[in-house]
Design a protein around this nucleic acid. Structure first.
Lengths: 242, 242
DNA sequence: CGATAGTTTGACACAGCTCAATAGGCGTGG
DNA sequence: CCACGCCTATTGAGCTGTGTCAAACTATCG
């Protein structure tokens, strides 16, 4: 385990000073010099909900850190059926390393801010900093664990368990500063009913009915279709089939 | 097995000489000296179908290369519902790097032969050989791509598409020396109907009915319940919803 | 306000599940 | 070699959870 250096903030690029990716993200592996080098070719930008960030079967030119907002990773069958295969939150790293072409698409689910880097910069950093590559590796393995967790949900859970599992996942991920011990959560759903359906392998109608059921059973409250309050996360968890 | 003292750089351990993992697997990244070092603490062994290779929530003590046979990776819900979240074939690397505990179980689906290494050996090799870590990283990313591919199958395909997709995957993976261009395949199913059901999020009966349908539609032939012949893989692919 | 997009609700259909019976493969022992 | 038992796979009949189609409702915004 590498010990984080005691770094004075004036050594760190302005761009990176309050960046979540420097703390829990891939940039946490870099020393100030490397941060400066990386920051030189990075660019921060914001995109609107619905913006396409990567296209399936498209050449990869850049990678990004997600600084805020939620990114959908999707796959689509030739006849249009769609499946969301992952969600990314700050400070996740976006983009498929070690490949020339994407096999999935990425789209902003909410307003998203990103810190992007040219492909070559990331490749150089991977070569020069073993710690950086290690962080990318580690994130890939976490995403693999997650994807396999969703395989269980998709293959073996009922519609109501799926919806409960989804809400639980959002509650746990949407606020990077959230204390996991707290048994209460309130958040805006980052996805529309159609997106939730595409994530859970259901239809919009079924998602809506299951949400209504959770609401009438007093497990959750919903305001303005988007804002969800969960008084008792354990209660929701018991409904998730875990 | 004795290793010679004065190893020239072109000397490869006997153990590794005809090993698939040295060609397409993680050991391909190692030079002869490193292979010797690794081989010193490795052990080859065979296990019966059904043998448990890793347990969920169990501390990790070793990693392995799959040399032959098929390994099921499974996750189980508390009430017993099971989902297969991946299959491993030669020369895949088995075990979750960068973690102290497993989050999945692994079981031999067929007779399996393995080449195993203590945890510390793999960890040392990862530190000392960037190429070795790179290969592990690369395999993790491939497994991630695959898992996401299965998410689409589980969430969005019909039962008959699922079964066709499964057969196609087996046809393409079971024989490491197979030419991808050939449009014909014949193989023994490495999984029982129950396993296939657990992989595809279906019941045994539905799997059986869909296989019968593929058989009566002359897309496949089945002998002795296990041996499958596919005259025309493209035809099968058209049934897979790809 | 009206227009639009997203969501909920209802009625009904059907793919895949459940339960039950039958058939087939394979090892063991007479 | 057959007979038996065991396990796995197939087939059938009926049920149910989720999908489909359609209509009504709600939030948001010009």
């Amino acid at each position: 385990m590498t010990v984080r250096q005691d770094v004075h903030s004036d050594d760190i690029p302005v761009l990176c000073q309050s960046c979540e990716a420097r703390h829990r993200g891939v940039c946490g592996a870099l020393d100030p010099d490397q941060l400066v080098a990386l920051a030189r070719s990075s660019s921060k930008h914001k995109v609107e909900p619905g913006a396409e960030l990567m296209g399936d079967a498209e050449a990869i030119h850049s990678y990004s850190n997600v600084l805020s907002g939620v990114v959908k990773l999707t796959k689509t069958l030739s006849d249009g059926r769609q499946q969301i295969v992952g969600l990314q939150f700050a400070p996740d790293f976006l983009g498929r390393p070690l490949k020339a072409e994407n096999v999935i698409s990425a789209e902003a689910a909410t307003a998203v801010s990103l810190c992007s880097f040219p492909k070559v910069t990331i490749e150089r950093m991977m070569k020069e900093s073993p710690g950086f590559e290690r962080r990318l590796f580690s994130q890939a393995l976490s995403e693999l664990d997650e994807a396999r967790g969703w395989m269980v949900t998709l293959g073996r859970k009922t519609a109501s368990e799926k919806v409960a599992t989804f809400l639980l996942m959002i509650a746990r991920n949407i606020d990077p500063t959230r204390d996991p011990a707290v048994n209460f959560a309130a958040f805006d759903l980052p996805l529309t009913r159609a997106d939730i359906a595409d994530f859970l392998g259901l239809t919009i109608e079924t998602v809506s009915r299951q949400l209504t059921r959770l609401r009438t059973d007093d497990v959750i409250r919903i305001e303005n279709n988007r804002h969800v309050t969960v008084e008792n996360l354990s209660r929701l968890e018991r409904r998730s089939g875990a």
